[in-house]
Design a protein around this nucleic acid. Structure first.
Lengths: 188, 188
DNA sequence: CCTACCGATCGGTAGG
DNA sequence: CCTACCGATCGGTAGG
């Protein structure tokens, strides 16, 4: 599964072929297929394995931070670290950005799964933003959904900046945008 | 070429196969291939055709606006319209967002072409932002590259909002983010 | 988990 | 532009 996630992050979930995966793992195609039944089931399992890694790398490190703005900032910082350093797990960059544009114009279980995960994470970001408003750490007229929407865009830009342009200052660019979106960090 | 652009926006530039394109056009595979020589040449030509449509739909409508903030705002508004209404040209959404994540982890002419186009457009956005600062329409300490970076993220989020989530209020969400990034529009 | 195989499709070529 | 064909690879099955 780990190798499947790595392959899919580079080639996409459609480019994750049974033959390629089997060769890389030193197995037969039928052997790989036996574990999943169909290619679509393999793709779904790969997406779920990637999602578990994302949760571990981005959500979990922020779990102990105080709900609201502190936790939102912790999530955003872990998210930058994920983009910059998860090269062994996701050598081709964020699997969910790739999967989103790969399936956003099709029907089926893959599209539904990608939309479900992306929607879930968007709502979780909005939840923290809402708590931040309630605590008085963000202005009263802040729209939590708007914050979540802009954050997602910021991290898709970060993924492009790292993968397509190989920009070394990508993380700092994102932090500057976060300062503008969430207010400057306390340490500034 | 038009049909190739439409196909690639849905299936990706790798999913644009000679056989599929030939069938759709009522031609033979060899007939299609004869025009381009290789699949890669077809993909590059498709990308360039899409780029011409992007220039026509997004850059040209803003050409007569005053350089600086007025033109930047005109570009941003045309860009929203492009995302919302270019369904006949790009039924699968923005071809350049798709191509960027499709090739950002590979080597080759396609990756180079996508990076060249994206870089060109980023620089053009930064150019207008710089003019806006010089004219006093944006704060003196504004980083034009930062504005361009955040704009790109905003439009990748808009593409996802339309294609993956089918959100009808996606354009207005983007306009709200633009107000925060560039200041409220004069009409407000 | 394997070998052996299936029909379909891939990019591309030969020859006209 | 076509027909006819190439070897490689696709997802998947049969049978063990």
């Amino acid at each position: 599964m780990e190798h499947g996630v790595a392959l899919a992050s580079v080639e996409g979930l459609e480019g994750l072929t049974l033959g390629r995966l089997a060769t890389d793992l030193g197995m037969s195609k039928a052997g790989v297929l036996g574990h999943f039944g169909t290619k679509e089931a393999l793709q779904l399992a790969t997406l779920e394995t990637g999602a578990a890694a994302f949760r571990r790398l981005v959500w979990e490190p922020a779990r102990d931070a105080e709900p609201g703005l502190p936790r939102l900032r912790a999530i955003c910082e872990a998210w930058i670290t994920y983009m910059e350093t998860a090269r062994d797990t996701f050598p081709g960059g964020c699997l969910f950005t790739t999967a989103s544009v790969e399936f956003d114009a099709r029907d089926g279980a893959l599209r539904d799964a990608v939309a479900r995960l992306s929607g879930l994470w968007r709502r979780r970001l909005a939840l923290e933003a809402r708590a931040a408003v309630a605590a008085g750490d963000l202005p009263d007229d802040t729209d939590p959904e708007q914050i979540a929407y802009e954050l997602v865009g910021l991290y898709m830009a970060l993924n492009q900046e790292i993968q397509l342009f190989g920009a070394p200052d990508a993380g700092d660019r994102t932090r500057r945008a976060l300062d503008r979106l969430l207010g400057p960090r306390p340490s500034d």
